[in-house]
Design a protein around this nucleic acid. Structure first.
Lengths: 247, 247
DNA sequence: CCAAAAGTGTTGATCTTACACCCATGA
DNA sequence: TCATGGGTGTAAGATCAACACTTTTGG
């Protein structure tokens, strides 16, 4: 299809990614223990929307898969390598890009805090708190809102929250990830029972001592991460069809 | 694949749809009360996969939205107008199409039985039972399997089963839709309580009498269909972000 | 009266939620 | 010893699954 005799008939394909990470500070300057959701954006340096902030992404290369394109553009623009990557949605409204017709296949990704600190930051890459974004290029505000919704519904039934943490962690840390995403407090006792009912965590034997109080056990995930994003049949990591599929 | 400077760099976009409907007969010839899931396929009349059965679909026109493209190709190839239409997934593996790189944005749709009976059937369009398909063109077997999985998980928490029925129906009919999709028997008593706990059904006052037994009340849905497929922000019917999103 | 599907009631099991309470530590 | 978060116990409430039982029809 591409460049048919009528050039204006061409539809371009782009791949973009919504990247989430947790940060301690809340953007006002204070670092009050509770982490919140942040995401990196890149500044556009050409029309349309020159100067606006936008999701990292770029055109699809003919020889790479969609997920690879997402990973590549992530590495190129932000220097990040995600722990979790899943296709979100294909956005293709006729008028979503002023310059010409573009269908964007959008992925969403999670990076852990250590990785997020390594990320490039500069004139053209900056982190924003997910719930206080400026006006973004194209329909990217709506895309982020949709991705946030997906993050919130999926954290409740999958183990993808693990991608936001390091190898080992305390149950309180894991719970605070859930709390940051769901934006409400969870009962520590019930949360503990829920997670170990799934039987995926194992204690390392180590402890972590922080304040003037009892130290917390460290845990790690015993099983491999859930059979991969939403089991699209031919995705890199897909395997047996479990009930981990997108609901 | 068209004429860009580097012809082999072009990536084509296609839109295809997996259409589901219920049919009474089971394909062996007998019409034993229990409906099963069927879908229409079209025979390819060119390479690659000339002569194979494939999902209805076609290239994306530059001036139509993705969902419109799905609806159009549905109407053109099968004559069907779906009651339910939702984006399923974008399939874009590098080698999924022998002829050249193609990214397929796949929708899934539901049509009611009356509509399904109206569908074109001929040399190049035929209905197949969803669990006994021949070898299809491209990766379409995997796509159908994925769509079936989505249908099965979604029927349990959304009201999309209504799209497979007419305006009014008995609770037994609604239950048999769920049973056909889930492939297991459901307790009539508990099913009844579940559905009217959602408070969406209202009795019409009419009855339907079938066999030598007590007649059944007819119901209709009071509320409009769930705020539309998975709330992709800019989709035609999306409105308030409910918890109807894809899980 | 009988068979069969429609529809209601009941009970025990399971899951959720709230919250009381003890434990271990640094200050 | 006090404050604080880590961790366990428990009981009320909601939800779910199984199944007995009554109702209404055609034959």
């Amino acid at each position: 299809m591409a460049a048919s005799p009528h050039a204006d008939e061409a539809v371009a394909i782009a791949v973009s990614t919504v990247i989430f990470a947790l940060r301690q500070d809340d953007g006002i300057g204070a670092a009050n223990g509770d982490p919140t959701i942040w995401l990196p954006l890149v500044r556009r340096i050409r029309e349309p929307f020159d100067g606006s902030w936008a999701l990292p992404g770029g055109p699809l290369d003919a020889h790479e898969s969609l997920a690879d394109a997402a990973r590549r553009s992530l590495a190129e623009t932000t220097g990040l390598a995600p722990r979790y990557l899943e296709q979100l949605y294909a956005f293709g409204d006729v008028d979503r890009s002023p310059g010409g017709r573009v269908v964007s296949i959008v992925y969403w990704a999670l990076v852990d805090s250590a990785e997020a600190r390594r990320a490039l930051v500069g004139q053209n890459v900056r982190w924003f708190p997910a719930d206080r974004l400026p006006r973004l290029a194209f329909d990217h505000n709506e895309i982020v809102a949709y991705a946030l919704g997906r993050l919130r519904t999926k954290v409740e039934y999958s183990d993808m929250a693990r991608a936001l943490l390091g190898e080992t962690f305390t149950l309180t840390e894991l719970r605070s990830v859930h709390e940051a995403i769901l934006q409400r407090r969870l009962d520590p006792a019930n949360f503990r029972r829920q997670v170990d009912a799934h039987g995926q965590l194992e204690a390392t034997g180590e402890m972590r001592r922080t304040g003037a109080h009892r130290p917390a056990r460290l845990y790690r995930y015993a099983a491999a991460p859930a059979p991969a994003p939403a089991a699209p049949p031919s995705s890199p990591t897909s395997s047996s069809p479990t009930k981990e599929t997108t609901r």
